[in-house]
Each structure stands twice: as structure tokens, then as C-alpha cells.
């Protein structure tokens, strides 16, 4: 019984692990000639939900991070680290939301006589994601 429970939860755990990641989609405006910027220390990256910088800036890309539980500090730390690496100085228009998704998996159990049955399992997993726009002051 416990083995069955563990097997049915595995896909959910794998899904959450896979989703607990940070991704950036760069807005390359020059095609193949990607502009590069010097990295910014993570602790210097400023995060705003509602404030727009009052100076000209260039959008470097969109960033998103997801966790199975809401943990703002951890999410913001991840956003700062990844944005800083591509030269982002600010992350603006930051939004946090949650979603529930179905994760399907299969497991099988066998009787001592050798008969085996395959089970389809469904686990509902909640993930929290935070997205924002990575920007840098125009120079």
C-alpha cells in the first residue's frame, strides 16, 4: 500500500521539481547579434511590482520562476540572480499567481501469484509563479 502511494506521488514530486525553476526569454532585438551587458550583482537588482523607472530603459527579456509553495524571498532571490547574470538592473511589472495542474502517472501492482495490474494516477499540484520584465537603464 505504501509502495503504491509512493509510486503514485512520484510524478507529482518530479513535476514540482521540474517547475521549481527560473527561466528567462531574452528579447533579442538585433537577431543573431545578441547584445550583451556586464552582469549586475544579484543584491543590486531592484524589483518593482507597480513602479515604472522614471528614466529611459531597454527591456532585456521576460523572467519567470515557480515554486510549489509561496516563498517570496526565495522567488525574488532567484529572479535577482538570473536577471543580474544578463545585465538586468531592474525587474518591473512583477506579478505572482498560482495555478493547479493535473499530473498523470502510472504504477503497477502485482499479486504473489504473478498477476499484475496497471493503475493510472492523477495528482493535483499547486504551483506559485512570479513573472516580470528584466530591464536596464539606457546609456
Amino acid at each position: 500500500m505504501n509502495k503504491f502511494l509512493a509510486a503514485s506521488l512520484l510524478p507529482a514530486v518530479a513535476f514540482v521539481s521540474a517547475c521549481g525553476s527560473t527561466q528567462i526569454a531574452r528579447f533579442d532585438r538585433n537577431g543573431a547579434a545578441r547584445e550583451t551587458y556586464p552582469p549586475v550583482p544579484a543584491e543590486d537588482v531592484v524589483i518593482y511590482r507597480k513602479t515604472k523607472p522614471d528614466f529611459p530603459y531597454v527591456e532585456l527579456g521576460m523572467i519567470t520562476t515557480a515554486l510549489p509553495i509561496i516563498n517570496l524571498d526565495k522567488m525574488y532571490a532567484e529572479l535577482r540572480k538570473k536577471s543580474g547574470k544578463i545585465g538586468g538592473e531592474y525587474i518591473i511589472d512583477v506579478k505572482t499567481k498560482s495555478s493547479v495542474v493535473a499530473v498523470y502517472g502510472t504504477s503497477s501492482s502485482c499479486t504473489p501469484k504473478g498477476g499484475c495490474v496497471s493503475h493510472t494516477t492523477v495528482n493535483w499540484v499547486t504551483t506559485f509563479s512570479t513573472t516580470g520584465t528584466v530591464v536596464r537603464r539606457s546609456r
Binding site: 543590486d44 524589483i47 509561496i70 524571498d73 535577482r80
Partner: peptide, 11 residues
């Protein structure tokens, strides 16, 4: 209940 604060500027 689970409340959290994260600062805009770590400095």
C-alpha cells in the same frame, strides 16, 4: 496563515 514580505531593494 502565512504572510511574507520581500523588499524591492536589498540595500
Amino acid at each position: 496563515a502565512h504572510a511574507e514580505f520581500a523588499s524591492s531593494n536589498t540595500q
